[in-house]
Amino acid sequence: MPDKRTILLADDDIEDVELLQEVILSKEPEVNVHSVSNGKQVMEYLASCTDESLPGLIILDYNMPELTGSEVLSQMSEQPRYKFIPKLILSTSNAYIHMQECIKNGATEYFVKPNSMRELEELTDKMLGLYA
């Protein structure tokens, strides 16, 4: 079973990572947020985890270097050990084709990055609710 205390956050925008990490930790202070900046690092991190230490939630940006969020989802879908981990896309892209592609590749939900702190806090509540 994945480790509910760990969240994997993958985004190449360091400000977005810091902001989301801050909001997550304000709501769930005991959670460990492990962040990486590209899709290749996501796959390397997951490969290094034992089944018991896999993250309980994965939040991916759509537009990342090396591998997009959708490509990461596609690779993860080929491995049964990732099946039960909620996988969320959090992206600036609201393109319907990106949303459909990610859901098809195994995303639990696709969220568009909000424009205000209040919206980010509300969205974080929704995301955390999917893994609790």
Rank of each mutant, 00 (worst) to 15 (best):
residue 82 Y to C: 03
residue 71 E to H: 01
residue 89 I to Q: 05
residue 85 I to M: 08
residue 74 S to P: 02
residue 84 F to K: 15
residue 78 E to Y: 05
residue 97 I to F: 14
residue 88 L to K: 00
residue 84 F to V: 15
residue 77 S to C: 00
residue 60 L to N: 07
residue 98 H to R: 12
residue 55 P to R: 06
residue 60 L to D: 07
residue 74 S to M: 09
residue 83 K to C: 09
residue 65 P to S: 14
residue 57 L to I: 13
residue 76 M to S: 01
residue 85 I to F: 05
residue 91 S to F: 10
residue 71 E to M: 03
residue 55 P to A: 04
residue 56 G to A: 11
residue 60 L to R: 07
residue 64 M to N: 10
residue 78 E to R: 10
residue 86 P to W: 00
residue 70 S to L: 01
residue 79 Q to S: 01
residue 63 N to K: 15
residue 62 Y to W: 12
residue 55 P to F: 00
residue 87 K to Q: 05
residue 74 S to V: 05
residue 98 H to Y: 14
residue 66 E to W: 11
residue 93 S to E: 09
residue 62 Y to F: 09
residue 91 S to Q: 08
residue 75 Q to D: 02
residue 81 R to L: 14
residue 98 H to D: 14
residue 66 E to P: 11
residue 72 V to A: 03
residue 62 Y to I: 02
residue 94 N to V: 04
residue 64 M to F: 07
residue 96 Y to A: 13
residue 68 T to E: 10
residue 87 K to P: 00
residue 85 I to E: 06
residue 63 N to S: 14
residue 94 N to R: 08
residue 64 M to Y: 06
residue 58 I to S: 07
residue 59 I to D: 03
residue 67 L to P: 02
residue 67 L to V: 06
residue 99 M to V: 11
residue 92 T to M: 11
residue 99 M to I: 14
residue 95 A to F: 08
residue 93 S to W: 03
residue 64 M to L: 13
residue 96 Y to D: 10
residue 83 K to V: 13
residue 65 P to R: 10
residue 93 S to H: 03
residue 71 E to L: 02
residue 85 I to S: 03
residue 73 L to M: 09
residue 80 P to C: 06
residue 70 S to C: 06
residue 85 I to K: 08
residue 92 T to P: 11
residue 92 T to F: 04
residue 60 L to C: 08
residue 82 Y to A: 03
residue 90 L to P: 08
residue 79 Q to I: 11
residue 69 G to R: 12
residue 65 P to V: 13
residue 64 M to R: 05
residue 99 M to E: 09
residue 94 N to A: 10
residue 66 E to F: 15
residue 61 D to Y: 15
residue 67 L to R: 06
residue 96 Y to V: 13
residue 86 P to R: 04
residue 78 E to I: 01
residue 92 T to K: 13
residue 79 Q to K: 01
residue 82 Y to M: 05
residue 91 S to M: 08
residue 91 S to G: 08
residue 90 L to N: 07
residue 80 P to K: 03
residue 86 P to Q: 11
residue 56 G to R: 12
residue 70 S to K: 00
residue 64 M to Q: 09
residue 79 Q to G: 00
residue 58 I to R: 10
residue 73 L to F: 05
residue 84 F to M: 15
residue 57 L to G: 05
residue 73 L to Y: 02
residue 61 D to H: 15
residue 76 M to V: 07
residue 71 E to S: 03
residue 96 Y to S: 11
